[in-house]
């Protein structure tokens, strides 16, 4: 048996773990494994050929680039939002705090058409930007805007609890030792926020990499220019190029797993730095 467990007076270990493992295997593990098997059918050369076509490379570049940029923007604004929401009192604070989760709750298709309409040349924001010659909808910039939206809550929500638990005494101690407000922030507060900031950044980046629904409406989806990887997978699937789609998906999955690993390490670091006295 896989699980070597400590004896307990409570019943139900076998059935519950058994069901959980079966369900997990059927829904998640076996289908995911199938993806790698299918992409392996191409052989090493075929695999690399499938993932290194100019169209695929352009999609990878766009997806990773825009996701990274969106995560960076959210790292900055997420920190700002978390700080403002936990440290300051102002009217509407609670509403805004609740609103931060909107990108989690709003279906991506809804977000997609809303953003596309807002940033279209005749949209509320797009028409303003159009006057200064800035085009967002139907360009790679549009991809970036959609990704900023959907990955917005991660950094806020990872930093907030840490900031809430930060004892005011350490800032007072810093001031009593002669540090000015900026020094206190830079040397005492920020180092504590850094691990959750990085965790939130990685979560936002991971989420942006896989995003599909909110992007396709605003991106314009021109192959080689504004086509993201998930869309490319979709298109290849519609053309019955299962193995190619699987190969590209495999690359994305590996990237996600690496990020997941990184996130776990970061979370342990957060707990260590922030946890025990």
């Amino acid at each position: 048996m896989l699980a070597l467990r400590r004896p307990s007076v409570l019943p139900g270990f076998g059935p519950t773990l058994g069901f959980a493992l079966l369900y997990l295997s059927l829904i998640v593990l076996i289908p995911l494994a199938g993806l790698f098997v299918r992409s392996a059918e191409l052989g090493v050369e075929g695999f690399f050929a499938a993932v290194s076509t100019p169209r695929a490379l352009a999609a990878f570049r766009l997806t990773f680039g825009a996701s990274l940029l969106a995560a960076l923007v959210n790292a900055f604004f997420g920190l700002l939002l978390a700080w403002v929401l936990t440290r300051y009192r102002f009217p509407g604070r609670r509403v805004i705090d609740g609103l931060v989760d909107l990108p989690f709750a709003l279906p991506t298709a809804v977000a997609g058409i809303a953003l596309a309409t807002l940033y279209a040349p005749n949209g509320w924001i797009g028409s303003v930007l159009d006057k200064v010659g800035l085009k967002i909808a139907y360009t790679p910039t549009g991809v970036f805007v959609a990704l900023v939206f959907i990955s917005l809550p991660f950094v806020v929500r990872t930093i907030q609890p840490v900031l809430q638990d930060l004892e005011p005494e350490i800032e007072e101690a810093s001031a009593s030792l002669g540090a000015d407000r900026w020094q206190t922030w830079r040397f005492v507060v920020f180092p504590v926020l850094l691990p959750p900031l990085l965790t939130g950044f990685a979560l936002a980046f991971a989420r942006a990499l896989g995003e599909y629904g909110s992007v396709i409406f605003i991106a314009g989806n021109l192959p080689g220019l504004s086509e993201i990887v998930p869309l490319l997978i979709f298109i290849q699937l519609e053309q019955y190029q299962y193995a190619n789609a699987a190969a590209i998906a495999a690359v994305m999955l590996v990237a996600s797993f690496i990020l997941l690993l990184l996130i776990n390490v970061l979370q342990r670091w957060t707990a260590k730095r922030h946890g025990d006295e």
């Binding site: 004892e167 350490i170 007072e172 101690a173 009593s176 540090a179 005492v188 180092p191 504590v192 730095r273």
Partner: peptide, 20 residues
């Protein structure tokens, strides 16, 4: 300002900087 008073203050729970 507390910064300029040059008082040594020892906090009840020490308030040591954990990351240092």
């Amino acid at each position: 300002h507390v910064r300029e008073r040059k008082v040594g203050f020892v906090f009840q729970h020490y308030a040591l900087f954990k990351h240092m």
